[in-house]
Amino acid sequence: MLDVEQLLERMTEDLRELTRARGLEVFHPVGIRTGGVWIARELRRRLGIEAECGELDIAFYRDDFSRIGLHPRVRPSWLPFETEGFHLLLVDDVIMSGRTIRAAMNELFDYGRPESITLATLIDLGRRELPIQPDVTGSRLELESGQRVKLQGPEPLELAIEEVSHG
């Protein structure tokens, strides 16, 4: 099984590399609830970022509202900083279709116009439906059909592969 600690180390290294290459001074981390927030907090600590970690609830921005409706437990998004003119580090636990990231970026733009957005994900499952790629990822993973990966946490952070039951 994948070791989250190892993946986080790799992501931290890659992010350091990336900031150096691009000449960025500081990131403002934003996690997508709930797994993305856990990962964002870890990366913030490891990268020694001072800014607090923002939290996004993308329920109001999903493109599948007409299919599955409003998520029953929506919580307010919380951004402790301005987005206008900032370099944001958008973090999620898993990327697959890319639709969640699309929704999150739409939401971020409703707060203002960020200078840049860098995307980091712990796991990349491939199978993209939109032209969105993470700048940094812990690991790529191929799932069998009928399987899904789930991040459990926040303490300890563990990845589990589950069989999805089809009803």
Partner: peptide, 24 residues
């Protein structure tokens, strides 16, 4: 309670520079 909680989230939306979400 769910209505009140959901409303809480929308109050936050009203505090953004763009007070609009694409739900409907």
């Amino acid at each position: 309670t769910r209505i009140l909680d959901t409303a809480d989230s929308f109050i936050e939306v009203g505090e953004r520079s763009i007070k609009k979400v694409p739900l409907l």
